[in-house]
Amino acid sequence: MMDEACENKAKCKEEKVKCCMRSRAKSRSNWMLLAPIYVFTILFVGLPILYMFLLSFLSRAKVWGVDFTFTLDNYKRILEPMYIDMLRESFQLAVLSTSIITLLGYPYGYFMARMNAVWKKRMMLLIMIPFWTSSLIRLYGWIIMFRSNGVLDKVLMGIGLTQKPLKLLYTYPAVVVGMVYALLPFMILSVYSSAEKMDWTLVEASRDLGASAFKAFWTVTFKLTLPGLLSGVVLTFIPSMGLFFIADILGGNKIVLVGSVIQEQLTKGRNLPFAAALSAVLMVLTSLMIRLYRKVTRTTELEGLV
């Protein structure tokens, strides 16, 4: 018994020494292999973000472009009530849509992982088919559903549930439905990939040790699929703050998201620095959110991310 532990320790030490020697010799060739990824990341992720942060401290030129004078005005402007409200509203919408997505997506992903191969395929197909057409076209589909005297109204009035058109289009719920619809697959797939890897013997072990079916789910399955759930949250929360075209198409001009404002400042307002400042704030807020999530749930890994 003790022998074994000792042996292992000795082995570990040996391995470590070997590893060190090997890694020193190999580190140069490894670096060469990884170089393209670094170059790619620096070029297409690092530099643009740096550029964005730099822009946010500059001021807007008279006609188009930027003046290279340092200023904090862009950030001060965000503190105006109008923009604070807009940020809060975007945040609320993102929280609401992400919650609904979680409630729908987690069970779907979980049950998909537990199904036999045939049903897995069918359920996967249900998620994949919508991706065969452009998301914009699918959104216009929702317009046909929601508009006054549209498909939904006709059905509801047809079966006598409502008497007159509901005027669902260009409302807050319409935007939420749009967000949930557009982002649900991301949640489902990341929960699924977590649940698919689950060793279900662990659930049996938990039941065997005295856990009820619910308790076993809560202490084992849920805990082990949490990385998938969290990466699903990240993948849906961030876009739902910024998917301006959903808010524009299904919400008319009534619901203004950070994404819409950034897009408007960029195109119509031609105010690159302010758009950059808004983006920077959005980025910092969301990364703070992710850190908080991780702290609260004590997960170090996110399924498929990091």
């Binding site: 013997t201 072990a205 079916a213």
Partner: peptide, 30 residues
């Protein structure tokens, strides 16, 4: 009877230790 209602415990072939709990929490689970 449900498995959790039986005074029977199993040592699984694959051990089935809970990977997200340390040794003490694994043993103390029941």
């Amino acid at each position: 009877l449900e498995p959790n209602k039986r005074s029977v415990n199993t040592v699984f072939q694959s051990y089935a230790l809970f990977p997200h709990m340390n040794v003490a929490d694994n043993i103390g689970y029941g």
